[in-house]
Structures are given as structure tokens and as C-alpha cells.
Design a binder for these strands. Sequence first.
DNA 1: ACCTTTAATTCGACTGTTGAATTTAATTTG
DNA 2: CAAATTAAATTCAACAGTCGAATTAAAGGT
Lengths: 413, 413
Amino acid sequence: MLDNHSPPKGCGPLLPLGAAQTKPMRQEIFEHVRAAGRATRTDVIQALGISAGSATALTAEMINAGLLREVESIPRETGRGRPAVALEVVTETHAVIGIKLSEKVHSAVLTDFAGNTRATAVLETLAGPKQLDDLLAEVGKLIHDVLDAAGTQLSAVAAVGIGLSGIVDHQAGTVPWSPLLAQRNCDFATAFREKFGLPIHLDNDANMLTLAELWFGAGRAKSDFAVVTIEQGVGMGLVIDNRLYRGARGMGLELGHTKVQLDGALCRCGRRGCLEAYLADYALAREAATALHLQPHESQSPNALLEALFTQAKSGDEAAQTIFRRAGRYLAVGLANIVQLFDPALIIISGERMQYDYLYADEVMSEMHRLTLNDGRAPCTVETHAWGDLVWARGATALALSAVTDQAIANLA
Amino acid sequence: MLDNHSPPKGCGPLLPLGAAQTKPMRQEIFEHVRAAGRATRTDVIQALGISAGSATALTAEMINAGLLREVESIPRETGRGRPAVALEVVTETHAVIGIKLSEKVHSAVLTDFAGNTRATAVLETLAGPKQLDDLLAEVGKLIHDVLDAAGTQLSAVAAVGIGLSGIVDHQAGTVPWSPLLAQRNCDFATAFREKFGLPIHLDNDANMLTLAELWFGAGRAKSDFAVVTIEQGVGMGLVIDNRLYRGARGMGLELGHTKVQLDGALCRCGRRGCLEAYLADYALAREAATALHLQPHESQSPNALLEALFTQAKSGDEAAQTIFRRAGRYLAVGLANIVQLFDPALIIISGERMQYDYLYADEVMSEMHRLTLNDGRAPCTVETHAWGDLVWARGATALALSAVTDQAIANLA
DNA sequence: ACCTTTAATTCGACTGTTGAATTTAATTTG
DNA sequence: CAAATTAAATTCAACAGTCGAATTAAAGGT
């Protein structure tokens, strides 16, 4: 019957599930109010499916703690019964700063606790890798400027979020590699904390942009979507079940370095056939010289080169058009692969390069749909956002904001 | 100051997080005992970090309910203090059947509540699409056989899990498309329930295999890993945080139809450049005829063709070798893309085709590592398992088993 | 026989939540 | 204008889940 001498080896996963992802109810209420901008207790009760008793107790607690407040003037509507009192986030309690660092320009946004932008700042800078100290000095300048613009001081800031391109370890706060930094494996977070004495949250720029979409943009109403950025490189962010997915080992999702062609075009990373080697600025620029019949020594800035290429293509030049057309086709491949692997309901394409409409042309979309299986289901929607750097910085505020929120709620208990 | 007349639009995700993923503690205890095969209360306390009081109360409750039992004969070890009493799952309470349906042979496994295989059955069948009723008749035969072999009857079975290739909607229990079924959009689950009156859990075969690895195989100790299968098609399963990830819209992860070549080889799906068009059986077979200098009318079974091709390649034939070499290189591309996008700690390659060692050759692995960025981190491990159909069926039992477990625990409260 | 050690149990306390009854604040109606 | 009506918010007893300190249980060591 039962053999006690050979103990069973068992079955099922040996590791426990990731730590409880159930937020305390206080936090869910708070976040619902913030997400709605304003909400009555009844709204909260219905949206979260909680009891009225809990709503009263927990909102009272948070009002008491200065996180929420009742809105004085009720936007009076006709209706019987006791009028509902709207709640809103007390915006003044915590401010956060979000910063996007990039090669030529840094940007910063200061938002209040409700996510409203209070001030912005921009800092032109020299391209090329820098020493960590120099980069932090630029960050200091930015913070100073944005505080100035907001009429506040550093002590009012609860946390800072920073996004930069490259390989960023969000959890550790380190930067294994970035085009902005001369050193490898920078301990960015520690250096920042020493210099500014503020909580810091780092992530790569694609994740920042994805957070911006999740918190402020088209992703707010979607629980699963992907964001693709095409600029200096090709980046990607993914939201699964309303959370930013950072990959199993905390590494970014390197869409730009997925292979779309064996022995294909040469990529910055030294490998061949990466998607980015067909789409990124440098990939177009290096073919542009040929199409524009420039001599090798007639150098221009990459941006000017791309501009010229674009006007050339628009005016009907075959060589210029074929560059964009090929880029578009590979973009379609990249998007199709995302659809096949993640099956998101929405893909958002973003980045300054989106002004070149070859990228969101109908041809690209239809090519993408041709390349994907879709058994009768609604095809994946693709949206294009040609947003500026400030949006990335706002995404960085979202990172800081959510950490500050977690902390503020935890302090209640 | 505060402008009450233009209500804030808010920020942050609008949708709540997915339903609570926190299992009741009873269930965590039960699953830990089952995963360990046998565990004392103290083991449980340490592993789950719970209090001794809870352990006593909850194990007592489950012992009382007949889910767990104390193991009589303690495997006596030297040591002081009160000896710990091991707990184990009461295996007899629930049995489940797992079934893998495929083109030429179906297999079934009957396991007890602890996941031990009690009996197996295999049924040869004709290839080609069938009517749902005919397929269900074959399922009936299989169930009958496996019950016979186990010496039980249908009433002892708590649930059935079935895996089949194609596009399977796990949640709805429907099969939008499968090579096994002549109809599209079969409501398989409903038909099954009507015929057998048993709870049924459907999924595609790649997910079944992935579950098998998670419950019984190399994935048990990993929280994040990918499984790639190469057989008639190329399939993929993904475990994120100890859970099977089914894609944002519940569709499988169609690795086989990711594009690795613009305008590439023709795929079964009618599109060009799909990974599967370079790797799957039919892809190799259609080039095999050329390499083996067969006339078009000299048809063989695909399997025989592949065998012949393989021996030809081994004996040094260039044409045959180049077929395998190309397949291997594209496999490397596919694996590299998985690594870039998901960054798993482990990839398991599985399937009968693994007997052809071109696929797990060192060359393929090193090509894959060449194709991936890895900034100083440990490269992704790749394991190869050439397991038979019964493992897939065992994966199907895992699906049924976890559902039955959820139910049994829920019934306690 | 008595101490030490380890396992398991008991039980009071605490937390987070619910739900019914109640209070509050408005509108509508006789 | 007072009473009825309606809806929002509050109060409060109850309950499930969990913890932790004290206790009991079962062994070995001295």
C-alpha cells in the first residue's frame, strides 16, 4: 500500500510565489481617488467592491493623516438624498521630481502628490559619455532649476525618479552601461543619495516612457500593453496586469537587439541582424549619405542628415524612399514579433522619430497585420505618440510617486 | 489656490490589479507538503515563515478534512527533543487524468492527489483532422484504458486535463483551431462535460509541457523559465514568477510564428519567414527530398525522410548537413530573441526531435550566446530534454491537479 | 529522577474586514 | 413648512486570519 521507506519526491513548484502583491486597502482607496482625480466614498465602494464601513474608517484615517481631503464645494448636481462628498489627494504633502537624462538635453518635471505638473526644466548639454560626478552636477543644476521654477525647495521633495538610456538595474540602482556614462557599473543611486540626500529611483528610459503611458497616457485604461520607442536605439516596455514587467532577471526587454535577419546589418552592439540596426537613427543615417550622394567627408549632424533624407524621400527620390521603406518593413517585423509573443491589446509607438511618418504609415500597419496570426480575434491596436522629452520625465515622476505613495501608506499603519 | 471648478483628471492606472493572487495559507501549506513530498510542521513553519500556532491549526483542519495525514513510521534520526512528525498528502482522496492528444498517438496518465503516476495508457490513432465526436470517442477509450490499468473507475476521478496542439483558449475551454479537429471554434470543454460529466481543463501542448517542467521537471526550482518545443511546429511556454504566463489576451506564445527573416521560407500558416518554417518537421522534410536526390513522386513518411536525412548528414553529405546547420542557426536566433525579450534564467528545449543532436549541438549554443547581449551576467542556461509523450500528459495532470487542489481547499472554508 | 532540547498545542490578542442598524443631509411632497 | 423620501456616511458588533507567548509533549542526556 503505502511505502514509508521510500519517501515521495513530491510535485509542484518548489519556490513560493512572489511576495504578496495585494496592496493594503488604504492604498487601493488612495490610488483610486488619485486615478479618478476626485471620487466620493460611494464611488470608491463601488469601484473596489468594499464595504461602506471600511470606506469610512480608512478614508477618515487618511484624511486624518493628511493624505486625502474632502472637497469643499460640491459640484452640485440635481438629485435626492444626502449629497456625496468628493475626496481628493492632498496635493501639497509630497512633491517628487522626475528626470530624463539623454545625450543632448536633460529634462525635469516637478509634480505634486496628485501627479500634477508644477514646474519643468530643461538643460542643454554636450553629447558623449561623462564622468558620474559631472552627470550628477548636471542633475543638480536641473533640480535647482525645477525647484526654482516651482518656487519650492529641496526639503519639499519626497523622492526623485531618473530615467536614462542604457542598461539600468532598477532594483540595485546601478547602471551597468549607459551611453551617458564613461564608467561601467556605476553605483548611481548611492552617489545620488550621498550628494542630495533624497530617495532615488532609477530605470531605463523605455520603462520610464512606459510608466508615463500607464500613469498619464493611453495605457491608463489598459492592463496589458507594450511601448516601443525608436530613437538613438530601439527600446521597449511592457505592462502586464497593470504592472511594469522588467524581465525575469530584472533586465530590460531588449527589443532593439532581437534578431530579425541572420548575418544582417551591423548593430552598435557589434552583432549582426539586430532590429535596431535597421531602425535606429544611426542605421538610417549611415545609408543616408549614400542616398544623398554625399562625399564621405561631407559630414552633417545625424539629425540634419535625417531631415534631408526625409525631404528627399518626400520629393520622390527612390533611393531615399527605399531606406524608409526597409526601415518600415523591419518595424513591422518587430511589432509582429511582439504581438506573437505577448499578444498585447495595444502597442504604443513613441519617440521623436515618429515625426517621420514612414514609421506609422498604413503600409507598416498592414504589413504588421499580415505578419501576425489572428484567428478571428480583434487585431492588436497600434497607436503612435510623438511626444517630447518632458513626457519621459513625467514617467520618471510616476516611479518616484508610486514609491512615495507606498511609503506614505505604510507609515499609517 | 485650489480650483474646484476644473476637477483634476487624476493619474495612475485606471484598472485594478488582477484578482488577489494570494493563496490562502492552508493552500500554501498543502502545496508545500506536496512539493516536498513529505514535510514536518516545523519544515512548513520555516519554509513559509508562518507561526507555529497557524501551522497546528491549519494542518489539523486539513488532516481532519482528509487532505493531509501524519506519516506513521518516523524515519528515525538521531537527535534530541521531541521528534517531528512528517505530514504527507492523502493520495487516495482525489485522482486526476492528464491526456495529451496528438496526430498519431494519444497518451493518458492517471495520478493520485500527490502527483504520483498510478497508470498510463496509449492509443494509436489515424493522423488528420477529425470530427469532435470522434476525437472525444478516442478520449473515452483512453480514459477507459487508463482507469482499467489503475483499477479504478470514473467516479474516483476529480478532473481531467487535456493538452492538444493548435490554438486553445484555456479560459473558455474552446479550440479556435487545431490540426486534430476538422471544425474550427470547437467548444471542446462543453462537449467533454456533457459526455463524461467531469471537470475539464484544456490548454495547448506547449503549455502542458511547460507545466510538466514546472511541476515535475527541471523548472521546479526555477521561478522564471522558458520551454521551447520543436516537433510538428515550434511551440513555447513561459513561466513568470512560478506561474504559467498565457499572454495578455490568453493566447499562446507563438514563438513558431515570430519572424526571423523578411520574405523568408514559407510557413504552414501561409506567411513567410516564420521561425517554424526553418525548424519544424515539415520544413526539414521538404528540403530533404532535394538533398537525398529523390524524385518528387518517391514519397516517404516525413519521419523516415528525416531519419534518412540525418544518417546522410552524419556520413558527411554536405547538402544534408547544410539543412541541419541552417535549422540550428535559426534555432539559435529564436532562442536569442527569447533571451533578449524575457531574460529567463533557463530555457528548456524539448521534443522528440531533440534526438537529432544538431539542435543541441555546442555550435547552436555558442551561436545563441554570440547573438545575445550579456553585460557580465551569467548567460542563460539551456537544457535539452528528449522526453516522450507521457511527460506531456503528466503536464496535463498538473493542470487538473492544481484546479482540484484549489477546489478542495476552498471547500474547507 | 531530573535537566535539556525540540516539536506541537493552546489560547488570548490583534488586524482587517464585513454587514446591519443608525445617523446625517439633502430633495420632494402633501 | 413639516413629514416623507432618498442617498451618503457612520457606528458598532462580529468574524476570520494570523501571531506570539506560555504551555504541554516526547524524546535524549546526565
